[in-house]
Each structure stands twice: as structure tokens, then as C-alpha cells.
Design a protein around this nucleic acid. Structure first.
Length: 482
RNA sequence: UCCCGAAUAGCUCAGUUGGUUAGAGCAUCUGACUGUUAAUCAGAGGGUCACUGGUUCAAGUCCAGUUUCGGGAGCCA
């Protein structure tokens, strides 16, 4: 049995001087043939292992290299050095796995994030990515805890779907049909009756529609699973495979929806601040270093920890789309013609507009509601009181500094006739969607929900600027390594 | 997909108006030292200058195309 060891996090927190312990981990660096910095991933702090002179044969000493894995037994002692309060005086060291220093790519020095992306299978062993993925774990755990505390049911919506009705982007096809000799109909189109499911199928782009079905029985549900978009997006905030959280609540209106989303985001941040303060501090320092490299006018005003504290302690700004357009039209940026894209009521706001509202005008997260119906999805509830020609829907987007849209949601259209009219107008295949429309036929209720991009949330909390650095193995156009 | 930029040693980068044998720091190896904190000191090895083609007496350097990467835009979460 191997697992009699103490993890380094626990050791640093609670072990007392003189105790004999066993630790296991990976060598970060070996200084002076005497001091091993050992890390086991439980914390970003290393344990300093002291090797007494002459304790190990020369040949064994040479095998203690960066990346090698060790089992160390020893006695905890007060450290004579300055960098740590306690250290482990080794009495026995076993090398579990060698790491050829000529070939091991990680060195005890700074590496660029771009380089580490190419060795994503090893980057977990760095301080930065150790912190990022410990925080990612905490966020995922906090998601479940938040909803569980509120009586939400975790619903597993399908990954493979036959509906392409939502129009949330290009989809990945799922098929077992051969590339050569694809079965054809008489008119030359592909005969999907021969395919595995007997119809055309894809990977899901959203669990929302199925989520609504669950909410119509359990009152409050949430989904948390992988989502796939085959968009050719090459940006710092898009992935082809990402994780999304989609709560769906019966008997909620738009305001209830906003209150939940805001409480949710603040809860997640508070959880990480309470459970990962070491990791956050490391990332805070990392970001501060990075900011120093930038020209003064591009630097952000708040550090990472300041920003998180601010978001937790202040209410999000809530404005309507119409007010947002008004603010943009009255802004100095607009008057000086700084915007590349036109501003007028009815536009789908561009990144530059959203960034102005969030980063320049309000300097905090902003919830925008009441978007024009023409630019939003069919399932969003038509607002009852609208100026003619300016029909709006009960939609809400939460815009976060540096990230842009982090949440998109709405109150859903629960009125059967209104929904059907909207679907027809937007050329949604009503017959194929009869299972969805059934919820409005049998005991329909007002309900609402939203989607939160999990990676964007991890980006926001960790301050990582590229989304590829907050998911273990990123899937992006032309890249599916590991 | 569009715009801009980049690709030189394991990593980070320099390389002048095109001109002899392409450099530095770190890493690695050898030796020294031994309470170090990205240890230090001395020495050594290490290159298809992304790929393909072109211009030229001569290309890491200029031109074209391709690939990949980075930043921005669109789409969105």
C-alpha cells in the first residue's frame, strides 16, 4: 500500500516539528545537490526536502532532476533557510520515476503561455496552471453546491441531438455512415434513414430546450456539461468544445432570472476566494507582472483580487437595451467617432459597444435587458408593452469586464399562440419541435433561464486572457492534440 | 472566415544598407563549491534560420505562395 503519505498541502498546514512523514511528488528544482523543491499538486507551495551530504550515492543524486517523481521519508524540522518556515529532513529517498533532463521541456524558469499550450500534457506541473486548474475544480464544485443548496435538480441533457432548431451556431455532425459510398436518396441527397439513429444527428449546441422540459416537472433544474460549436472562431474567448451551465426555472420572470444569475456569479467568486486564496494570490501577482509590460493606457485599473472583491461587494448595473443605446449615443466615444460600427436602436451591439459600457462607462458587470425581438432567438418572451416597430423580448445578457458576454438568458415565451407565430415567422420547423411545444400545451407556466459559459467564468476569476489556458485540452479550429 | 503581426539552439530573444565560420541569456553536459530559494563560478556541446518556389555573383535578411502560432474583428458562451 502506497497511500500512507501525507499531502504537501496538509503537511504545510498542520504537521508539527519532529513528526516523521512520507511524501510523494514531483521535483520542481534541485538546488545545490542538497535542496529539493517537491510539489504534489495539492497546493502551489513546494515542500523543501533537505538531502544530507553523503546520504545518497552519487548515482542516485544525479537522478534527482526536474520532473522526476520521488517518495521521500523524513522528519519535519524548522527551516534554517529563509524561503519557508518548515522543511523535510530526508531519511530515505526512492526515485519512483526518472525524468531525462535533456528531454524534459519544463525548466525552473518562466515559460511563455504559448509554449506551454504546445505541451498541455505537462503544463499542469507549472505554478500558473496548477493554480488555474485547482480554481477550475473549485468553480465546478461550487456550481453544484450553489444549485443543490437551492433545491435545483441536476439534469443530464443529451450530448447527441437531432434538433438543429436553436440556431446557436454550426454543429458537428454525428454519423456512422461511410465517407465512400454514402447511401443516397433518389434525388441525390444523403439517406439518413441508413444512419445510426435513422436521422441526421449532431453534437449539442445547448441543453436549454431539453432543460425547459425538466423545469416543467421539477420546477428548477440545471445542466452542466460539454457543448460543441463548429464555428470557425479564432479568438481568445471561443472553443469548439466548452462547458456550459444552463439553469431553467419554472415560475421565474426576467427579474427573478437576473437575481439568480447575479447571486450565482457572486457565489462562485466568493467560494474561490474562500477556498483558493493561495492560488488567487499567485495569479494576482502573475497578472500584475504582465500588466507592467503593457503601455500605461492599456493597463487595467484594478488587480485581480481587487476586481473580484469589487464584483462580490457591488450590485451589477441593470439597464435596458434602449438605455444602453442612449448611453452610447451620448458618449464622448461616439461623438468623437471612435466606434467603428454604427449605433442606433435595433443594432446588435458590437464588442466595442459592450466594452465601452462595461469597461469605460460603468466599470462593473452590466445586465442589459429588453433587446429588440428581431436580433434574438424564437423562444424569448415578447414584451407586452412596446412602441410599435420597437418590439422587444425579455432577454438579458450579463457583460463582464475583459470577457464580454458571460451570461445570456431570457424569460421564455410560455404562450402557445405567440410562440407558434414566432416560430413560423423565424422558419423554425414546428412539427419537429412538437415535443418542445407540448410544454406550452399542457400546463404551461411562466419560466426563465440562462446559460453561463464555464470557461469564461474561469477566465474571469483567474484573469487568464486566453480561453485555451483555462481548459485542460483545448479544441479549436485546426487543433485537436492530446 | 477577414485584417494585422510573427516563425532563428530545448526555452526567451538579438542578428545592421543582402556579404566570410549565425550570436546572447537561461536550460543541458563536465568540473568546482556546499544552507540553497530561477543557487553561484569555470568550461563544453547544441542550428534543415517553418516549408516550397523565386530574385541575386551572393538570401536568416528581399519577393510570392503554403503551414502553424499570436493579437484584433465577426459568430457567440
Amino acid at each position: 500500500m502506497l497511500n500512507q503519505r501525507i499531502k504537501i498541502k496538509a503537511l504545510l498546514q498542520q504537521a508539527s516539528i519532529g513528526t516523521h512523514v512520507t511524501v510523494m511528488g514531483w521535483v520542481r528544482t534541485f538546488r545545490n545537490n542538497q535542496f529539493i523543491a517537491l510539489n504534489d499538486g495539492s497546493t502551489n507551495y513546494n515542500l523543501q526536502v533537505v538531502v544530507a551530504l553523503g546520504m545518497l550515492p552519487e548515482a542516485t543524486l544525479k537522478r534527482i532532476t526536474t520532473g522526476a517523481s520521488l517518495k521521500v521519508q523524513g522528519t519535519i524540522a524548522e527551516s534554517l533557510g529563509k524561503g519557508q518556515s518548515i522543511e523535510l529532513l530526508a531519511t530515505a529517498i526512492d526515485i519512483l520515476g526518472d525524468s531525462d533532463p535533456e528531454k524534459y521541456p519544463l525548466q525552473p524558469k518562466k515559460h511563455s503561455l504559448e509554449f506551454l499550450r504546445e505541451i498541455a500534457h505537462l503544463r499542469f506541473r507549472t505554478n500558473t496552471f496548477g493554480a488555474v486548474f485547482r480554481i477550475r475544480h473549485s468553480l465546478a464544485f461550487a456550481v453544484h453546491q450553489f444549485f443543490n443548496e437551492r433545491g435545483f435538480l441536476y439534469l443530464h441533457t443529451p450530448i447527441i441531438t437531432a434538433s438543429d432548431a436553436e440556431g446557436a451556431g454550426e454543429m458537428f455532425r454525428v454519423t456512422t455512415l461511410p465517407f465512400d459510398g454514402t447511401p443516397r436518396n433518389e434525388d441525390g441527397t444523403v439517406n439518413f434513414k441508413e444512419d445510426f439513429f435513422g436521422k441526421s444527428t449532431n453534437l449539442t449546441v445547448s441543453g436549454q430546450l431539453e432543460g425547459e422540459l425538466g423545469a416543467m416537472a421539477f420546477s428548477e433544474i440545471y445542466t452542466f456539461g460539454p457543448t460543441f460549436r463548429a464555428e470557425n472562431s479564432n479568438t481568445t474567448r471561443h472553443l469548439a468544445e466548452f462547458w456550459m451551465i444552463e439553469p431553467e426555472m419554472a415560475f421565474y420572470d426576467l427579474e427573478d432570472n437576473m437575481n439568480l444569475a447575479e447571486a450565482f456569479i457572486q457565489y462562485l467568486i466568493r467560494y474561490v476566494m474562500a477556498h483558493n486564496s493561495d492560488d488567487l494570490q499567485l495569479l494576482d501577482r502573475r497578472l500584475a507582472e504582465e500588466e507592467k509590460q503593457k503601455p500605461a493606457n492599456e493597463r487595467s485599473e484594478l488587480g485581480l483580487l481587487d476586481k473580484l472583491n469589487f464584483v462580490v461587494n457591488n450590485q451589477f448595473e441593470r439597464i435596458t437595451y434602449t438605455e444602453a443605446i442612449q448611453i452610447l449615443l451620448e458618449s464622448p466615444a461616439y461623438k468623437k467617432k471612435k466606434f467603428k460600427y454604427e449605433v442606433s436602436w435595433g443594432i446588435d451591439m458590437q464588442s466595442e459597444h459592450e466594452r465601452y459600457l462595461v469597461e469605460k462607462h460603468f466599470k462593473k458587470p452590466v445586465i442589459v435587458t429588453g433587446y429588440p425581438a428581431a436580433i434574438k432567438a424564437f423562444y424569448m418572451r415578447m414584451n407586452d408593452v412596446c412602441e410599435p416597430g420597437k418590439e422587444t423580448v425579455a432577454a438579458m445578457d450579463i457583460l463582464a469586464p475583459g470577457i464580454g458576454e458571460i451570461v445570456g438568458g431570457s424569460q421564455r415565451e410560455e404562450r402557445l399562440d405567440v410562440l407558434q407565430k414566432r416560430m413560423e415567422a423565424m422558419h423554425i420547423p414546428v412539427e419537429e419541435m412538437s415535443w418542445y411545444i407540448d410544454t406550452r400545451r399542457f400546463g404551461t407556466v411562466p419560466h426563465a433561464g440562462f446559460g453561463l459559459g464555464f470557461e469564461r467564468m474561469v477566465q474571469f476569476v483567474t484573469g487568464m486572457t486566453n480561453i485555451r489556458d483555462v481548459i485542460p485540452f483545448a479544441r479549436t479550429p485546426k487543433n485537436c492534440s492530446f
